[in-house]
Design a protein around this nucleic acid. Structure first.
Length: 430
RNA sequence: GGGGGAAUACCAAAGCGGCCAACUGGGACGGACUGUAAAUCCGUUGACUUAUGUCUUCACAGGUUCGAAUCCUGUUUCCCCCA
């Protein structure tokens, strides 16, 4: 029985672990690391699982290392990818590394005076010191190719005929060496990671045994899935990023709010730090009145606040109420301009000259060339949508495409156009 | 190498001289219902337009015909059978 492992277990975050890890963690403060691949200049919500794992580790009194793969990112992990990766150039990589480091610093406690202060490391710092010859002599010598080829991640690539380059093949050695390096220099005895990392991690423990004669441990977290089988963390717009420039706090909040009931129980355990009693109480509440979506709201709240801020959360709630609640034209008109623009941050905008606007004779004309195809590709398309009852302006449904234009402009200059349920556009009359 | 078959819109799949911008299913997009859900039901789905219209489509290039996705010739690709 180890508190950290128990915590992961009831949260459904335990996939696999090496045999003696519990006894090891029970001995006192241990150190563990978890790696992040700098494939982009922001983390996305998939990475959050790793972040939470480290967070629980630190909360259990242990010392977490967040490793950003400045070196491994140059190679590309073959794990469960179907094809060879494109390599990023050094400059992009540097940029990505610093962005990700910056984001990570928000989640773990890097400032505490306690001895389990979180630390940020970059494997480029030690890997870049290595010459190729030194590496293959000092590290490569300890691991056989047979061993490396027996990994599922490599086997799969060999079997499906696409093959993999020597570069990607050697990935597990680099990652394995990271573990050895941290074990040797930072007394880091545990590596945490997603279940797809198991093979790489074990190569690390193997290296530690052979090169250092020591023992080290591994624990993996399951891959996050969705009940309907589609990929977790994706929306029509692509990944859900932690960077507010890439995914607005509003969109971020919405993502969590739209999680299905089946997934909500699972996610609230993984992505929030709420304790077991609280979660079970929320689940009971949710079961009583599923339409209130208690679980989704709580997840969305917790995660939005953790990743963004209290203010961003409140703004997202406000925006959601306006966009999806029973708000009316009056409610819209009552917003001050600042709030209005914040709520509709990221919504596509069209600017129309006042003279042109007043010259329009029918609603349909608004979607002709004057709006540059932003809202509709053509007038015919707009007409169909209006006839299908799918268009609202200022929250009021437009029924007749030929009706004349007679809208109250919000803030004296905006029109809020809604296409379908979730697509909003702002027309600004200038 | 010989013989046979197929190529249709995002996908699958009908059509086999005019009634075909092309049945139907899936997907996508809208609507109703609902919990900003699932299930269900309804509508749209070549383009532009809103007239009861024009234009561009049924592998590609030619041809027959008043008229072709439908017939003929050639080309390309794919599948099957025999060697």
């Amino acid at each position: 029985m180890n508190p950290f492992i128990e915590e992961l277990r009831w949260r459904g975050m335990l996939q696999d672990m090496t045999p003696e890890i519990e006894e090891h963690l029970n001995k006192g403060t241990a150190s563990a690391y978890l790696g992040f691949d700098p494939t982009a200049d922001s983390l996305h919500i998939g990475h959050l699982v790793g972040v939470m794992t480290l967070l629980h580790f630190q909360r259990a009194g242990h010392k977490p290392f967040a490793l950003v793969g400045g070196a491994t990112g140059m190679i590309g992990d073959p794990s469960f990818k179907s094809a060879e990766r494109n390599l990023l150039d050094k400059q992009t990589l540097d940029h990505n590394v610093s962005c990700i480091q910056n984001q990570l610093s928000k989640f773990l406690d890097f400032k505490t005076n306690a001895n389990n202060k979180a630390e940020l490391v970059n494997n480029y710092d030690w890997m870049s010191q290595f010459s190729f010859l030194d590496f293959i002599r000092d590290v490569g010598k300890h691991i056989t190719v047979n061993y490396m080829m027996s990994k599922d991640s490599v086997k799969r690539r060999l079997e499906d005929g696409n093959g993999l380059s020597f570069t990607e093949f050697s990935y597990q050695l680099i990652q394995g060496y990271d573990f050895y390096h941290l074990w040797k220099n930072k007394n880091c005895t545990v590596q945490l990671g997603g279940s797809d990392q198991w093979g790489n991690i074990v190569t690390g423990t193997e290296l530690i045994r052979r090169m250092g004669g020591g023992s080290a441990f591994a624990l993996t977290v399951p891959l996050i899935t969705k009940a309907d089988g589609s990929k977790f963390g994706k929306t029509e717009g692509g990944s859900v990023w932690l960077d507010p420039e890439k995914t607005s706090p509003y969109a971020f909040y919405q993502f969590w709010l739209n999680v299905s009931d089946e997934d909500a129980s699972k996610y609230i355990r993984i992505f929030t730090t709420l304790d077991r009693e609280t979660i079970e109480a929320l689940e009971a509440e949710h079961a009583q009145a599923p339409h209130l979506r208690t679980l989704q709201k709580e997840i969305a709240k917790q995660v939005t606040i953790m990743v963004h801020s209290q203010e961003d959360y409140e703004m997202a709630v406000k925006a959601s109420e306006i966009l999806f609640g029973k708000s009316s034209t009056e409610d819209l008109a009552a917003l001050d301009e600042r709030t209005f623009l914040q709520v509709f941050d990221g919504v596509p905008q069209v600017k129309i000259e006042n003279a042109e606007y007043t010259a329009l004779t029918s609603i349909l004309d608004l979607f002709g060339e004057i709006s540059q195809g932003v809202i509709f590709g053509s007038k015919g398309e707009a007409r169909k949508m209006i006839q299908g009852g799918g268009l609202s302006i200022n929250k009021e449904k437009v029924a007749d495409p030929n009706a004349s234009i007679n809208f109250e402009l919000l803030q004296g200059k905006y029109l809020l156009v809604q296409k379908g349920k979730k697509n909003y556009f702002i027309v600004e009359i200038v």
